[in-house]
Simulated assay, not measured.
Amino acid sequence: MKKFFTVIGGMGTLATESYIHLLNQRTEAKKDQDYLDYIIVNHATVPDRTEHILDNSKPSFLPPLLEDIEQQSKLDPAFMVIICNTAHYYYKELQAATNIPLIHMPHMAVSVMKNKYPNARVGLIATKGTIADHIYEDEIKEAGFEYSLGDKAIQDEVESLIYDDIKEKGTVDADKYHYILKTMHDKFNCDVIVLGCTELSYAQEKAPNHDYNVIDAQSIIVDKSIEYSRKIRNGEKIDFDKIY
């Protein structure tokens, strides 16, 4: 197979499934051959990203992801995406291991937000690991936004939605998800809320019936995957250094 891209996923599997579902749903196709060419790596046994970030004595997720990157690079995809926001903690190390462009999902999401909501006050909801490693916070600061991370109470609700509901039970508590958005909007005066975890993107797919503005990084990377894949199939060159 030529002119394809690679999806590094499994962190978690339902979030990766959501990405693939949206990818296929949004691809304009009238026959089999109109769909995109891609390889999915559903590496579900990658150690927990947040556990490692909060406690470096816990197993690192870098070695298995490096292995995935190195394996896939041998197949020469046009580009790669990692379907896990927290895994971008090691983005520099992963990109340094290959000459294949690795799309930076948090950076892409904030770039889109800057164009769409240039004067917004931003709320960020994510895992404790993503909050602790400042992946999104640094991007949001650099883009010039005022922002809020909420408080411990709302962080506990976010963690419960991600781990207790989605990862453990495979379900989305729509009321809990909508309560989180409402709290970020009403209590912390956020005009737009960044979904800084792919499980939250899964929640958005399953429970989109709310009135709050969200920046869904996974949804954005779906659209960009389609855009880049189409260009590559048509023989167009993409300057990945300037895509943001």
Results as ranks from 00 to 15, higher is better:
33 Q>R: 14
34 D>G: 04
35 Y>G: 05
35 Y>E: 05
36 L>D: 09
36 L>P: 07
36 L>A: 09
38 Y>D: 07
39 I>D: 08
40 I>S: 13
40 I>G: 08
44 A>N: 14
44 A>M: 12
46 V>H: 10
47 P>H: 02
48 D>Q: 12
50 T>W: 02
50 T>R: 01
51 E>P: 06
52 H>V: 09
52 H>D: 14
53 I>C: 01
53 I>P: 10
55 D>H: 11
56 N>D: 13
57 S>E: 13
58 K>S: 09
60 S>L: 09
64 P>W: 13
65 L>H: 09
65 L>T: 05
66 L>V: 07
66 L>G: 08
67 E>Q: 13
67 E>D: 11
67 E>V: 03
68 D>V: 07
70 E>R: 15
71 Q>D: 09
76 D>F: 14
76 D>P: 01
80 M>L: 04
82 I>K: 06
84 C>A: 11
84 C>M: 04
85 N>G: 01
86 T>C: 00
87 A>L: 05
92 K>C: 03
93 E>V: 05
94 L>M: 15
95 Q>P: 00
95 Q>T: 10
96 A>Q: 12
96 A>T: 07
96 A>Y: 00
100 I>T: 13
101 P>K: 07
102 L>E: 02
103 I>K: 06
106 P>F: 13
107 H>C: 02
107 H>D: 10
107 H>P: 00
108 M>A: 05
111 S>R: 08
112 V>K: 15
112 V>F: 12
113 M>Q: 03
113 M>H: 01
114 K>W: 07
115 N>D: 15
118 P>H: 06
119 N>C: 05
119 N>H: 06
121 R>F: 10
121 R>N: 14
125 I>D: 04
128 K>F: 02
133 D>Y: 04
135 I>L: 05
136 Y>W: 12
